[in-house]
Design a protein around this nucleic acid. Structure first.
Lengths: 204, 204
DNA sequence: GTCTATATCCCGATAGAC
DNA sequence: GTCTATCGGGATATAGAC
């Protein structure tokens, strides 16, 4: 049982302790690899208690997923003022920081995309990632309207490349940092800054 | 039991049928979620037979992983002649096609990076992905030497962004195709072409 | 809301015949 | 090289007391 689970238990919030333990375990190992016994142990409750609160293992997973989505959405609310290009920069930078601040929640969402992206692609697109993606595309469009970005570029593609670079560092950073020539990846801020510069200025 | 597993069995190649079934299952569901019973069923052999050939479930997984790495490496050998920029373009395009041609093998490798990228990062970097990454960086350097790419850009970063965009489409394509504004992602060739153009010309 | 005890099932691995 | 039968353990889920 970890510290904050212990605190939650002391306050009588059994479900909170369970949710926290489950999020950590599911995000690290995936749904199938985690047993209720593990969750119960880490949360400091019994297996039966989990079933009592969430009905089944899948019910617990859905509750955990819902929580992670809400938390990630809430984090993305705040958007600084300023020039479009600078807002795009800060939004992307902040977003990457949030991923590293809340790795469990983001890993869980990414796992969901990887695992069920084919069958539940439409559902995930509309309910989970659609809003924040639309916001990013709108930011790029604002940059075009303000004359800071070329009209010819596809705002959707620009947004995708930005997200791809963020996600890739988050997922593969542990491997990238050991590749000769990939030293930029060792500092997320510097990495994202370099990506933005490359995208804006171009390689040619 | 699928068709090619049936064919392999008919030829007396039990191990081949097992490896093929195991690669499909491991790449779809991950190591822990797959049972020997599933593998045995899909390969048309008994559980005991698998243990007899590979010693344990982990032994089977390692054999599958080794096969996937070898196959992916072999596919990347051939490199067309021509101008550096065109070679970079065709290399990236071909690589993406290969991912979609052999999704099981690539999904398996990506899973390995995501799951064990933290602990085994150095090992994966040197033994699995190091060589092909170095080749990509070298291609970018050649472009710089030929004067087709600016000296200021970091070849490693350029390579990472290219890989990130490839991997992201491969992983999240099922979700991306349903996002308004992300229509480019519906054709891998067109997508990769658009990414290259954006990277070369820049957005500003 | 939390527990213990238990039912039922499936897991990986072994033993040994053919 | 392949099989059947089985062991020991851990999985999810249920029943019912406190």
């Amino acid at each position: 049982m970890n510290q904050s689970a212990r605190q939650a238990l002391r306050r009588g919030e059994g479900t909170a302790a369970i949710l926290e333990a489950a999020e950590a375990l599911f995000s690290e190992q995936g749904f199938d690899a985690v047993s209720l016994r593990q969750v119960a142990e880490q949360a400091g409750v019994s297996k039966a208690n989990i079933i009592h609160h969430f009905g089944s293992k899948e019910g617990l997973y859905i509750a955990v997923l819902r929580g992670a989505v809400e938390r990630c959405d809430a984090l993305l609310e705040s958007l600084e003022e300023g020039e479009p290009l600078e807002r795009l920069r800060s939004y992307t930078r902040e977003n990457l920081r949030q991923m590293f601040d809340q790795p469990e929640a983001y890993r869980l969402l990414l796992r969901e995309v990887l695992e069920h992206g084919q069958e539940r692609g439409r559902e995930l697109a509309t309910r989970v990632v659609g809003e924040s993606f639309a916001r990013l595309v709108a930011l790029v469009r604002e940059g075009q309207d303000a004359g800071a970005l070329r009209r010819e570029i596809d705002p959707g593609l620009m947004a995708i490349v930005l997200v791809a670079c963020k996600v890739f560092l988050f997922q593969a950073g542990g491997v990238l940092r050991h590749l000769p020539g990939a030293e930029v990846t060792q500092d997320p801020d510097r990495y994202m800054e370099a990506v933005m510069t490359l995208l804006l200025e171009g390689a040619r």
